[in-house]
Design a binder for these strands. Sequence first.
DNA 1: GATGAATGAGGTTTCATTCAT
DNA 2: GATGAATGAAACCTCATTCAT
Lengths: 212, 212, 212, 212
Amino acid sequence: MGTRTSKARTPVQERAIHTRDRILRAARALFEEKGYHGTNSKEIAARAGVAVGSFYSYFDEKKPVFLEVIRQYYREIAEKTLQEGEPVAASLKVGKKADPKKTIRELVRALYEAHTLSPSLHREITAMIYSDPEVEAVSAQEERGVRELILGVLSSVSETLAVSDLEAAARVVHRSAEEIIHRLRMFRSDIDEGRILRELEDMLYRYLFVKG
Amino acid sequence: MGTRTSKARTPVQERAIHTRDRILRAARALFEEKGYHGTNSKEIAARAGVAVGSFYSYFDEKKPVFLEVIRQYYREIAEKTLQEGEPVAASLKVGKKADPKKTIRELVRALYEAHTLSPSLHREITAMIYSDPEVEAVSAQEERGVRELILGVLSSVSETLAVSDLEAAARVVHRSAEEIIHRLRMFRSDIDEGRILRELEDMLYRYLFVKG
Amino acid sequence: MGTRTSKARTPVQERAIHTRDRILRAARALFEEKGYHGTNSKEIAARAGVAVGSFYSYFDEKKPVFLEVIRQYYREIAEKTLQEGEPVAASLKVGKKADPKKTIRELVRALYEAHTLSPSLHREITAMIYSDPEVEAVSAQEERGVRELILGVLSSVSETLAVSDLEAAARVVHRSAEEIIHRLRMFRSDIDEGRILRELEDMLYRYLFVKG
Amino acid sequence: MGTRTSKARTPVQERAIHTRDRILRAARALFEEKGYHGTNSKEIAARAGVAVGSFYSYFDEKKPVFLEVIRQYYREIAEKTLQEGEPVAASLKVGKKADPKKTIRELVRALYEAHTLSPSLHREITAMIYSDPEVEAVSAQEERGVRELILGVLSSVSETLAVSDLEAAARVVHRSAEEIIHRLRMFRSDIDEGRILRELEDMLYRYLFVKG
DNA sequence: GATGAATGAGGTTTCATTCAT
DNA sequence: GATGAATGAAACCTCATTCAT
């Protein structure tokens, strides 16, 4: 996709596609366990059961592997979110009187579930956003998808909303919920998870639906 | 305080303290510019105008330098926040009828200002939280301070609050605001900063003060 | 003819001969462009339009390819030299009073033309003579041919020659002329080519024909 | 001396200068024995009795080492040639009737002696001229010195010379003699060295001094 | 036969850290 | 105390060659 000439092989044989996949899976596992900087190409190759040379014939460097892993991860998240978000979407489409509280709960739940996939990979991505523009770019693009999804939900109930600037609202809602959920999944909190989630839902509910 | 034996010298002479400081300042500058992994000890020493050997006589390793830089950074933030938060605190202490909207605006403003200090260092810290337990520990402790501060503010106006679980609320408020502000400062947003901040304030205001 | 077992196929089918040829041509082009060390087998195969595997079924290693390329190159030179040297030979055979000056001029011209073929391949061969005994052997043998040719010319006019040690003279004449012409063709000289060639001819002429 | 930023250390301490020297000497020995491409940095370091890291703190790459070795080699040659060429120069300066034959013999002898220094390094340099522009540049510059020297000799006896284009003559003389002597020193010839040298001297003598 | 995937030894290079001066 | 030289493990990457399909 870049304009740089890449020496990386474009797999044609089935075996090659399989190998490339094994490398990606091994890389992902290691990035989750030990982070990007803590993982090296030799290890990735070893875990994938291939020679270093093979690693380098599929990828120019370590970074493109990470970018590919990210893309796959986001794709999985998107699938899962759509699936989990089904009820929200459904209730919105069908009924006129969607229960706002329920909508919020389901939205939070969907984001929560998405984070089940791989909290530590998410962590690593977040870390790399800051130090690598390419990671930022990929991440930004994928996040845009989720934001749009939220914007869609908001739009569909716009007449009952307390907010007018939907675009800005979508961002605020998305980032708040994401961040809080991510921290919950990532670190053991010293207070009960349920309490945090309840407050998060309350916050979103009142912000979006309670005119005051 | 620790049981580990450290070869690092504890500077007592004024010159030594000065040198240690030069190293820390050089390190900080480099961490901001190129990140932790992108900076090496030789560079730090060079920028500080000392020999590598000296660097290692003041610090056992590279990591403690980073931890120290973090601590200093948080200390500066705390000072700045207290200063910026002065009006909030003042208005709370004195008068009975604190204007909730104004309180929120000042809180957000204080956090915003704190991030002026060094968005890129903040970025680097956030990145390292995930890969280094010590960084996480230091960061967690320092963040606890801010959370406590927010908790204090909430407590002082507890009778006018719409929330009951103050502890959980403080976390939700803190993380939401932090994250949104941090992103604003770190990345150029494609929609106006003012709009995001306005929504953030609205969200916090309704959550905290509007019973619905 | 050799006792070494070679896995390299001896092509008999026309297609195979054609393929082997394509590989040799590709290799030669690349050796000229990037030198022996700068060219790798994958590239050769790619440029020849075959798979690496095929490359290795026609040649055991990379080196034999280079040796073969050299041999072909020398064969071409020989043909060209004979052709260009035709007048020299002819005038010698027929007439008794060959014009010595003309003979020299034609000799130099023949060597000059031979170098038109591929200065950069010549360069690469010269470079490899020193580091590879096999290249040296092939080169030595092929050069012997040219020397013999010169020796023949000298012998045929021996009664008019000012020199007596024809064998040594042939070497001295050959290497001097070769070297000077090669440098002319290989590098841009800062003085005019014509002047150098004139002096070369003068030198050879006086050495061979002027008794002093 | 280049404009490129080099990470190579500029040695200040005496020890460092000594180490750099050890590396250069080891490199030279290996280049002589196994050629440039046949030598690697690890070996150089080992032979110099230092760690690879040290090698790389003194030189950015292998090439600069080679260039430095070349420069030193040429410097030594120059010294030696001047020394050996002393009689030539002396006889020219003092006496009016320099014996041309003797002058030639001494010139050839001086070039011959210069090649005693390290025929195999000379070989390696010649090989690299063709594949590396930097080597070519250094070599060209150093060779210019020798050519100038020869030009000087020719000028000082210009009234007795049979040639008029001294500049071109100097080149032709230099390259012929160089090449023939180099081959003698480098490869075992199948005919006696003395015979070749005698012919070389005859050639130069008649070319330069015999009007025909 | 042909293909291109896979191998892995071996080369280059970096950098946190130690140590001699 | 300070200096910067030295270390070497470990990372990165290449490419001639073999091998499964």
